[in-house]
Design a binder for these strands. Structure first.
Lengths: 127, 127, 127, 127
DNA sequence: GTGGTCTAGACCACC
DNA sequence: GTGGTCTAGACCACG
């Protein structure tokens, strides 16, 4: 896992992001134990509280399950047959927020579609 | 202009966003004067400091020019024939941040492309 | 608001519980601002981080909305026309956990129903 | 006996819960010997310390009696003619804790009564 | 060993 | 003024 200190995104969100990416890439499999709070904190050189916060959020999102005294484990990826309306609203909101920026910078819409396809590949393959 | 207080995005960024959108939609044309800091603040019912910060950022991005004692005016939209590498890196970063979420929620890539096209239309037409 | 230090329930959960109760009782109304993190922390004599945690959880549950630099505000109570299955599962789980205890203590089922009605009244009226 | 590792309730409490349920259901009768700490730990695949703690708590609650060198035995179910005030206070507290949640989720009081009756049946019949 | 809670105190972004 | 993030270090419950 790699954290970019130059990024404005808070560390704990970067950790959440990375764990999810590793699950999608199959580096972490359902049922598998993820590193302990203290171990990950030490290997990243940051405070354990920050990792604990990330793990708690991941549990609230039902990405992992945590058992006190034993550790945290990867959950099943949700079988989102019915795309929750809330999820759609959230993603659309995020699209809207950078798309005006992109339009203003005169980036052709085809280029944007291309970039998205490339990034999807990147997530699947692992950079 | 409409501000959504429920949005996590800070107000000054929402103001920047809205000014840019109005330029893209042709509501504001190059050379045209935009409302004064005080006038806009009053009409939106927010703190003038917040508008001042937004205008300062817009000037730094060369979207508007401010002439002391006269007001602020819309600049030419940049003719970005050559897409700056920095611009691309920034947009790709923003794409990456929500795309992992979307992948995790099992949203098909075709759906995402469709949403983007819809949102582009929305920007062009003005909601 | 009153915190019971003898209770095993963590302080931040007691705070969440109390805010929700006050909303149900009409002490706090939708749109109204709740006390600032620092103010509530001081008046309860506890660390501001603990209140901040409670408020963040309340925001994740969509009970309040928080605007950086302004404060936190009560949201609309959800119009749960369709009772989410997840909600039902959670409540049933909680019922199951103490009901065996009650059965073992030989408490008649009618008594339990009576207690629940009394507690509902108590929530509505405010102790 | 079945333990749910996904449940937030600690394992030793789940063991206590299950023993009591089996007594209520008549699977275990007063005077009957229950499995040894080691045997139960092995059959559940968990740490013997955990079972030992459960048995110790059960003995403190006078649900079982342990005779050194012989094993643990089921006690008489208490003939709680007079409901202890302490018992009532404890149960009422537990009711209060989830009832606010239920009220907030707009669950009708009739539904809650129905759920309780259903769960009582479930305990009596053994799922 | 594991995670959960809490305190104390710092710095930052926003209004 | 507001909340958000992060650090450092403590103590507890659980296995």
């Amino acid at each position: 896992m790699y954290l970019d200190p130059n990024q404005s995104k808070p560390i704990y969100e970067q950790v959440i992001f990375n764990i999810k990416k590793q699950i999608l890439q199959g580096i972490l499999s359902p049922g598998e134990q993820i590193p302990s709070v203290r171990a990950l904190a030490q290997s990243l050189g940051i405070n354990p509280n920050t990792i604990a916060k990330a793990y708690k959020d991941l549990e609230a999102q039902e990405v992992i399950v945590t058992v006190k005294g034993r550790g945290s484990f990867v959950n099943q990826v949700p079988s989102n047959d019915e795309l929750s309306l809330q999820e759609e609203k959230k993603i659309r909101q995020e699209i809207r927020e950078w798309l005006t920026e992109a339009q203003y910078a005169q980036i052709p819409i085809e280029t944007i579609h291309k970039w998205i396809d490339e990034e999807v590949e990147r997530i699947k393959n692992g950079n």
